[in-house]
């Protein structure tokens, strides 16, 4: 039983990271109906920037903030260069471009910094607290705390500010939003910036949690976060969080109970299952295409 709760806690940490990434996926999908393949790679860039800051002697908080800032800019650039020209093109062309962007970041990074795996210097005391036999590391506090702060911040932006209102309007109906005087292009850019910033934070957290930073590190977390977004209902922000945490916990339980070889397979089994059983996701509502 103790083991069970331990795994659940591990899953909660992992799941919060997935949630942070999934939120970015879901926001972008909600607003332009495009799977942003490069999202996981933005995360990787964030991890590298954070690493650079940390190696330069900065503390944890400035490292995360600068990584978020850099990636927000990167997200806007990506949107401008690889996605915006294709907004009215076929879905297939847009997806292809997104894949190109993803490959570019991965192998560009590899060409510049080599494929070598790097690790973060010690940024916070590596202490383990013991609550009734359940071990909680400082890392876990860091992850849960950061996620909580960012999620509250995001909720504030989306539901309490004018920009957030514009984002919701654009994702609901682009043309109507434009007629209401909303600048659709800049709203989409802001969405990319926000999503990318969250991914960057997740990147730094992953770098610290697994103690490994390498050019392909964004691939699997990116794929899994997409599954989390679908699980929660694509386009739905609370759904992405719920989906992320559920996925993290399932994965931790599976690998904790001897199936570590299949931990990567869990996410895709869930994807297939959810598509078969409830394709709109847990919190998603049915969206019918207008004919």
């Amino acid at each position: 039983m103790q083991e069970f709760f331990q795994q659940l806690l591990n899953g909660l940490s992992l799941g919060s990271i997935y949630a942070l990434i999934a939120v970015g996926y879901t926001m972008v999908y909600g607003i332009i109906q495009l799977i942003n393949f490069a999202h996981g790679d933005v995360l990787m860039v964030g991890a590298y920037v954070g690493l650079g800051m940390a190696l330069a002697g900065f503390g944890l908080v400035p490292s995360i903030l600068v990584a978020m800032l850099v990636c927000a800019v990167l997200g806007v650039v990506l949107e401008r260069v690889a996605y915006r020209p294709l907004r009215n093109a076929s879905r297939l062309a847009a997806l292809t471009s997104a894949i190109g962007a993803s490959l570019f970041l991965e192998y560009g990074m590899m060409a510049v910094f080599s494929p070598r795996t790097r690790s973060y210097p010690v940024l916070l005391p590596d202490k383990i607290y013991n609550f009734y036999g359940i071990r909680i590391a400082t890392k876990d506090f860091l992850i849960l705390g950061t996620t909580l702060v960012l999620v509250v911040f995001l909720q504030y932006i989306v539901y309490r500010t004018k920009t957030g209102k514009a984002m919701r309007a654009v994702s609901f109906d682009k043309d109507a939003a434009r007629l209401m005087g909303i600048n659709v292009d800049s709203t989409i850019a802001v969405t990319f910036a926000l999503g990318s910033a969250l991914a960057a934070a997740a990147g730094v957290l992953i770098g610290i949690y697994f103690n490994a930073v390498y050019p392909l590190m964004g691939l699997m977390p990116g794929l899994k976060a997409f599954v989390a977004a679908v699980l929660g209902g694509i386009g739905n922000i609370p759904g992405a969080m719920v989906g992320g945490i559920l996925l993290g916990m399932t994965e931790a339980l599976v690998s904790g109970y001897g199936g570590s070889m299949f931990r990567d397979a869990v996410a895709f089994a869930i994807l297939i299952l959810i598509l078969l059983v409830k394709p709109t996701g847990l919190l998603g509502t049915r969206v019918e295409e207008k004919v």
């Binding site: 260069v81 690889a82 020209p85 294709l86 093109a89 062309a93 847009a94 292809t96 471009s97 894949i99 190109g100 962007a101 993803s102 490959l103 570019f104 192998y107 560009g108």
Partner: peptide, 10 residues
């Protein structure tokens, strides 16, 4: 290849 993909898509 990545650049070729993006350019050909656009």
């Amino acid at each position: 290849y990545a650049v070729m993909l993006i350019i050909s898509a656009i």
